[in-house]
Write a protein that binds this DNA or RNA. Structure first.
Lengths: 249, 249
DNA sequence: AGCAAAGAGTTTGACCCTATAACTTTGTTA
DNA sequence: TAACAAAGTTATAGGGTCAAACTCTTTGCT
């Protein structure tokens, strides 16, 4: 058998090793915390001796960035899969399911989510506007944008009058709109971004434990937020299906 | 002169050294990033040789925790000062000033705020419910709570009917209310917490660069958020005083 | 088939960081 | 003034990041 086009044997081995690196780094992160993820520790755990990892990453920061990007992809995949699962359902139900899937992943993968939000390698400067992490985060947020665009096209939702938006805000919205191909009017984008900010912001606060002084169980807080978001998009809120009753304490 | 009561000479020297440690750690954080803040580097920068710092902190995590708590205190002080400055003003104006002071500090002290939100030492386990950081964060959030309580007592604001809140949420609100001495009915606390979550959440997103894909200048976004908050508390929104025009690019 | 180049991995070593132990200096106090 | 405690020092063990020099294997080319 000839070498099957693009995937030489070397290539396949390399990919396998890369996957293993991801897996081991993640295991260390989850079981022993952020500071346990070191080039040496990962290599050791794989039975490799230290500097070998430099064949795969130019340094610690790059490793962290790549692993983090992997998390973004996984999360995006989870949400995307939820979207497909509910493809035939009404838009509201699908959107709610996606939001809940987002939170579900986040709270069952706290360590990973924490890294995504504030990775120990603060990215190659904020300058890295084209960084892998930026890219991945964008990709993942686009899934939700796509849904909102569909809702907009189907029935629309209330948006502020453009002249009610601060000029500087309008300018930014115009720029963003242009950058992503003008799928919606800027005012509608503004509603989307507000909603996204609230959803994602709440999630970050939960996972980063910034509200633990008040809440121990965020589920109802999150649902409250979802109810608000439904209001913003003129959708009917539906409580989560009682499919999975919570275990008694 | 006899030793002046509680502050012996030794004590004063120690305090001075501690302040210097804070200052140096902060300088390293701001100028060279989180990873530059190491026990050794701090000591070196002070002209001290390494392990001397262990006379002040039992280890790296404790140092980070203390420095971070200092940031909380400073931020709380800034907001508190703003509150005093506007003590005679109408409640809405004072609250807006405090929120803007909060953001003002955050965006002019990105590195510090980032540490507060996600310090490299993820706290002595989440178990540390009585940790210094938890305490400091709480203290700082209470300043805002105090204002809202005053607004509640003065004229009140719309709150959800208790029976409209999820039972689990009500229970948490009751517990929180009890913990802080029942200054307001739980439903009013809920409004406060929602507002706090939105304000603080937005700020975190800004400082952590999570929305840079859409916004470059958050000022109007933040003002929009303030407008919403005013709505929640039945206050009249007022744009920021044009006292400080922004410099032209 | 044979051979050079490239890839994967190893060891070595310089340098930095944490943290402990043992020791010195210096201020406080009975 | 002698004893004590606090503050600071050096020495050292152990781990981490990387670069450099060196094998060994796979691959591509002739």
């Amino acid at each position: 058998m000839s070498t099957p086009s693009a995937t030489s044997r070397r290539e396949r081995l390399r990919r396998t090793t890369l996957r293993q690196i991801h897996a081991v780094a993640r295991k260390l992160l989850v079981t022993q915390g952020s500071s346990a993820v070191t080039i040496n520790a990962v290599a050791r755990e794989m039975g490799m001796s230290g500097p070998a990892l430099y064949r795969y990453y130019s340094g610690y920061d790059e490793l962290v960035a790549d692993v983090t990007a992997g998390f973004y992809r996984e999360l995006a995949g989870t949400v995307e899969e939820t979207r497909r699962t509910w493809a035939a359902a009404p838009a509201a139900r699908r959107l709610l399911a996606m939001c809940r899937a987002l939170r579900g992943w986040a709270i069952t993968h706290c360590a990973e989510f924490g890294w995504m939000f504030a990775s120990p390698a603060p990215s190659p400067a904020d300058s890295g506007f084209e960084s892998s992490r930026y890219e991945a985060g964008n990709e993942f947020e686009k899934i939700f944008l796509g849904e909102i665009v569909k809702i907009w096209e189907a029935g629309g939702f209330p948006v502020p009058r453009p002249e009610d938006l601060a000029p500087s805000l309008r300018a930014q919205l115009d720029a963003y709109s242009a950058r992503i191909g003008e799928p919606m009017p800027p005012a509608a984008l503004h509603v989307f971004l507000s909603a996204w900010t609230r959803l994602y912001g709440l999630l970050c606060m939960e996972v980063m434990n910034q509200l633990s002084f008040a809440y121990t169980d965020f589920e109802p807080v999150f649902e409250e937020c979802l109810r608000d978001l439904c209001g913003m998009f003129a959708l009917a809120y539906e409580p989560p299906s009682a499919a999975q009753p919570r275990p008694a304490p």
